[in-house]
Amino acid sequence: MMTNDTKAAASPEGAVAQEDAGAEPGKALIHLDGLTKVFETEDVETHALSNIHLNVRKGEWVAIVGPSGSGKSTLLAVLGLLDTATRGAYLLDGRSVLDLSATDRALVRNRHIGFIFQSFNLIGDLTVFENVELPLTYRGMPAAERKQRVERALEKVGMAHRARHMPGQLSGGQQQRVAVARAVAGDPLILLADEPTGNLDSKNGEAVMQLLTELHKGGATICMVTHDPAHARVATRTVSLFDGRIVQDEQRR
């Protein structure tokens, strides 16, 4: 099980060499080349990310691990187009996305990326249904189709019966399942999860991991930041960061 045979392709050439054109499984969905992110304060320049090379193929489940401050969350934010890099290249599904305008970035996030946050980040004033529906409304999708999609997503996470509840009426585990439903409702290219079990007790944490496993089996591409080694082992690949660098890239299966 714990094979360590494939090092991730560390260069674009590698990625190109490995892939052939076409939308078949195995194509590099995410391609990072020399990605660097620098924060500057008065007298210190902090390299949150240093020269990151990473390829993620369709259908992969990548766990991003590392101690606090190692840059995991920053990496996830850049992958999710929530943050930009200082240097380097980022191709998402073959398209360069680093120099997009804010409006185009919003469009890409809306169409192609599903987010799951540690603190769920449901909007407290909206019902469960409306929360899941939100990204779809930004897409200008007709109401009937939205309804169908939202219901399907809520069923997938076992929360259909709570559609009319407010987030405050749900337990943490339930809120996170709603957040997962919201992330998958728009059929994104990739799911990005930032410590999805971080605010949950172990039982609810396991349930969320189970949910992600099912999504992965259904073909979803997942990048997940986690503290928990046990959860990292469920993923098909573990990328370890330390002080903003990839120090280990371990692939299973």
């Binding site: 902090t46 101690p67 606090s68 401050g69 190692s70 330390f242 002080d243």
Partner: peptide, 12 residues
């Protein structure tokens, strides 16, 4: 409470 949570390894 996680006094080094926001810090680099050297500062930590």
């Amino acid at each position: 409470d996680e006094p080094t949570g926001n810090l680099h390894s050297q500062q930590a």
